[in-house]
Write a protein that binds this DNA or RNA. Structure first.
Length: 587
RNA sequence: GGGGGCGUAGUUAAGUUGGUUAUAACGCCGGCCUGUCACGCCGGAGGCCGCGAGUUCGAGUCUCGUCGCUCCCGCCA
């Protein structure tokens, strides 16, 4: 790091350097002016060093020191000395030494910053985002951005070691049906036509396989014009990979090694390989969600059998209209107050459940508003199925299958959190496999792809494509960490015939398929190798690695929830001239 | 599109059933201070209480609207 401006960085000097003459450059973290001696903590991204201005040893340097303020940029020169006995600071890596300054240069002054550059002040996010370049000076942000670099470096090294090529794909590309809303870019040279920013490099990476590149990866920006969340930004980064001549297990094995390397390097965590695999069906049955948090039990219990002959109106009508009844047994939950149970009702209502039935298993019997509607045999079967013991709280949802599963799945997570069932330090990966190919979209009255339209069906389900599309399973897999989807992928369709069939099922007309995806169908017809791949959300992975509450904490320049940039003011209006060039009229 | 939370000095917050001059801490400015490291001591400046209406003798406080930030539902192949 030695250069004109510095001989060392601010985190480097140790007792072994005592006696050396050094030059440091950095920002003023803090200054303590004693009238006589002046102390300044000089900061750069590597650390802090205390530099001392002493009027007796260096009167000229000391004379200017009184005017130095926070966040000034200084260059200092002097000798590394041992701190006097009793003044060593054990909290600082450089706490054994200080630099006795004899020459100082103010490289730049700084206005008073809108907030202090420390890691204790909790500043409102809007202020942080407006002055992001100052926020990024703070320790937690420096940590996050540096860790992010280390992760991408690990990924590049690991994939390079495994013969992957990093290949760029276009940012100005084609809008395609299905999926998220596109960000569009008008074409000046083709008035009235638009590029779309990629939602992912999906089609291009498949074309790279057709081209014979065999193993591709890219750390790449993707764009989706949908509403934001704590873990969703309109532009985000994927670790995107595609392989030829592989089956699912090849991909899973290679990727597990990569994930294990990342978590080892960043968190010192030794992964237990291979990661457990759960079928989609099991995930939904037991956890209610396709991204199960397996750090704690509290499984969903199917009670359709128990209540098959129920006279209880609510349960009867749900079962008669193809709905399901499931429950949770919260051990020790009987002590929850009526208000606390009402709060649980509010949780399931968010996800569309109309009610939440409950039973407190007390020593003197079952306390519940509904148990009087149950037959004795049902009560017995229920107690057995749910392994009810004194002190338990049994909770039920009866609704359409999707609503029952999702609302109880979310309630399970809520209870896991609230009741302290989750060990926050635990890291539990699992693969979710054997997803269905399609779901029925009630609003659009057509099938939609669960993963994406290029995902291959399981070989044994090929013949069901036409007859029973909803029963067809896909060669798709998601990697889930502590209930959060880290990434997902699939083996792709590599022949044009099957691909055309899938488009048909998705109700994409031949003509439209030709127009939108013709180039892919063409490519598949020229000897496409069997191939598949996976993509990971880098931002989300960083958020989990660093334990941050929001994806914005691991992105240097994130957008607000309304997808604006408080720092630059984007998006903004443009000149009439620019619009004219693009043949765009204001609405 | 819908539901919840927040908005008061530069920053973080307090502000009672509506009632005198809107508080505090940190930061900032000035002075003092030779071993501090969240330095200390003394003094000072700093406010469109997000914005706009309304209710009222009187609004930081109540009502409505609006803007911004945020969490969630929908949406996100």
């Amino acid at each position: 790091m030695a250069a004109a401006y510095r001989s060392h960085v601010c985190g480097a000097l140790r007792a072994a350097d005592i006696g050396s003459r050094v030059k440091l450059s950095g920002w003023v973290q803090n200054w303590r002016d004693h009238g006589g001696v002046v102390f300044i903590d000089l900061r750069d991204r590597y650390g802090l060093t205390q530099v001392v201005f002493n009027p007796e040893t260096a009167p000229e340097a000391h004379a200017g020191a009184h005017a130095i303020r926070s966040e000034f940029v200084l260059q200092v020169e002097g000798e590394v000395v041992a701190r006097p006995a009793g003044t060593v600071n054990a909290n600082m890596a450089t706490g054994e030494i200080e630099v006795l300054v004899d020459r100082v240069k103010v490289l730049n002054k700084a206005r008073t910053t809108p907030f202090m550059i420390d890691d204790i002040s909790e500043i409102g996010e809007n202020v942080r985002l407006q002055y992001r370049y100052l926020d990024l000076r703070r320790q937690p942000m420096q940590e996050a951005i540096i860790a992010r670099h280390r992760v991408t470096k690990i990924v590049r090294d690991y994939l390079d070691d495994n013969a992957f090529l990093e290949i760029e794909t276009p940012m100005l590309t084609k809008s395609t049906p299905e999926g998220a809303r596109d960000y569009l870019v008008p074409s000046r040279t083709n008035p009235g036509s638009f590029f779309a920013l990629p939602q992912s490099p999906q089609l291009f990476k498949q074309l790279l396989m057709v081209a014979g590149f065999d193993r591709y990866f890219q750390i790449v920006k993707c764009f989706r014009d949908e509403d934001l969340r704590a873990d969703r930004q309109p532009e985000f980064t994927q670790i995107d990979m595609e392989f030829s001549f592989v089956e699912r297990d090849d991909i899973i094995t290679l990727v597990e090694g990569m994930i294990a390397a990342i978590f080892k390097e960043i968190k010192g965590f030794d992964s237990d390989l291979p990661f457990p695999r759960i079928s989609y069906t099991e995930a939904i049955e037991k956890y209610g969600l396709d991204a199960p948090d397996i750090r704690f039990a509290l499984p969903l219990v199917d009670l359709c059998g128990v209540f098959a002959g129920s006279e209880f109106k609510v349960f009867r009508s749900v079962l008669d209209s193809q709905g399901i009844i499931k429950g949770l047994n919260l051990k020790g939950g009987a002590r929850l107050s009526r208000k606390e149970i009402d709060d649980l009702l509010a949780v399931v209502q968010i996800y569309g459940a109309k009610g939440l039935a409950w039973i407190k298993v007390n020593a003197d019997g079952w306390q519940s508003p509904i148990v009087k509607f149950f037959a004795e045999t049902e009560v017995a079967a229920l107690g057995r199925e749910m392994a009810a013991e004194v002190g338990d709280l049994l909770l039920f949802v009866a609704d359409k299958a999707e609503i029952t599963n999702e609302s109880l799945g979310r309630l399970r997570l809520h209870l896991g959190e609230k009741m302290g069932l989750i060990d926050a330090a635990q890291i539990s990966f699992c693969w979710v496999v054997d997803f269905p190919m399609f779901a029925w979209d009630e609003q659009e009255k057509r099938h939609v792809a669960i993963h994406h339209p290029f995902t291959a069906p399981l070989d044994e389900d090929l013949d069901k494509l036409q007859s029973e599309p909803l029963a067809v399973k896909a060669k798709a897999y998601d990697l889930v960490l502590n209930g959060v989807e880290l990434g997902g992928g699939s083996i792709r369709i590599h022949d044009a015939d099957t691909q055309a069939k899938v488009f048909q099922l998705l109700n994409i007309a031949d003509e439209e398929a030709r127009e939108k995806f013709g180039f892919l169908l063409d490519a598949l017809s020229f000897g496409a190798p069997p191939h598949g791949g996976i993509a990971f959300g880098l931002d989300r992975m960083m958020m989990l690695l660093l334990g941050r509450q929001s994806i914005r904490e691991v992105i240097a320049f994130p957008k607000t929830q309304k997808a604006t940039c408080l720092l630059s003011g984007a998006p903004n209006t443009v000149s009439a001239r620019q619009l004219r060039d693009l043949a765009i009229k204001k609405a």
